Simulated assay, not measured.
Amino acid sequence: MRRRSLLLLVPVVVAAGLALAGRGPAPSELSPVPPAKAERGGKRIGGNPAGAVRIVDGDTLRIGDARIRLHGIDAPERAQSCSDADGRRYRCGEEASAALARLIGDGRPDCAERDRDSYGRSVAICTVGGRDLNRAMVAGGWALAYIRYSRDYEADEAAARRARRGVWQGSFERPDQYRAARRGSRR
């Protein structure tokens, strides 16, 4: 029980630290996206109020035993670094995770499964308080539209890029390319 409580505190502490350091925007600044519903059908996930919510990274969360990959988005990996507008390196993967934690806040994600991935995870559209978390992550610049699987968030990515929000403030390696390079170096 104590370990579960600590796991829930980690994203809150990271988000608070980023906010104090001036790195992360306030939740209201993460995205200009208006609230929406986790629409488009699918099996509901996360309805068990006893299941703890844990952020795995910027595009994956756990609700109880369910591991959920956010549909149509790709966020920097937790260990991934990027460069800001001044060329300084920062841990964009951790910031993406913190952005998702801020969006969820004290809310309870409501997720509609769209598919299952090759790792057996639910691929879902998730909302909190009616706000589409997938869209908000892309609109805030902390995830990219994963057009290999969906074109749902292309316009949100273009707007984030133009406004230089999140990872678009500087330079970064696309998360899929980062993963591919790491897989290639392990061979």
Rank of each mutant, 00 (worst) to 15 (best):
R40V: 02
R40W: 15
G41M: 07
G41Y: 01
G41H: 05
G42E: 01
G42D: 01
G42F: 01
G42P: 14
K43S: 14
K43T: 13
R44Q: 11
R44C: 03
R44D: 05
R44L: 00
I45C: 05
I45S: 09
I45A: 02
I45D: 02
I45Y: 05
G46P: 03
G46N: 09
G46S: 07
G46I: 00
G47H: 13
G47M: 07
N48T: 07
N48W: 04
P49K: 12
P49L: 11
A50L: 07
A50Y: 14
G51A: 14
G51T: 11
G51C: 11
G51R: 07
G51D: 09
A52L: 07
A52N: 04
V53L: 07
V53R: 13
V53D: 04
V53E: 02
R54L: 08
R54Q: 12
R54K: 10
I55C: 00
I55G: 08
I55R: 10
I55P: 00
I55Y: 00
V56W: 09
G58W: 12
G58H: 03
G58Y: 10
D59M: 05
D59G: 14
T60P: 03
L61P: 05
L61D: 08
R62H: 05
R62E: 02
R62K: 13
R62D: 00
I63Y: 07
I63S: 02
I63A: 05
G64Y: 05
G64E: 10
D65V: 07
A66V: 13
A66M: 12
A66G: 10
A66P: 03
A66T: 12
A66K: 04
R67C: 08
R67E: 00
R67K: 14
I68S: 00
I68Q: 01
R69T: 06
R69V: 11
R69Q: 10
R69A: 06
L70M: 10
L70D: 15
L70R: 08
H71W: 10
H71S: 10
G72W: 09
G72K: 10
I73T: 06
I73M: 08
I73E: 09
D74H: 10
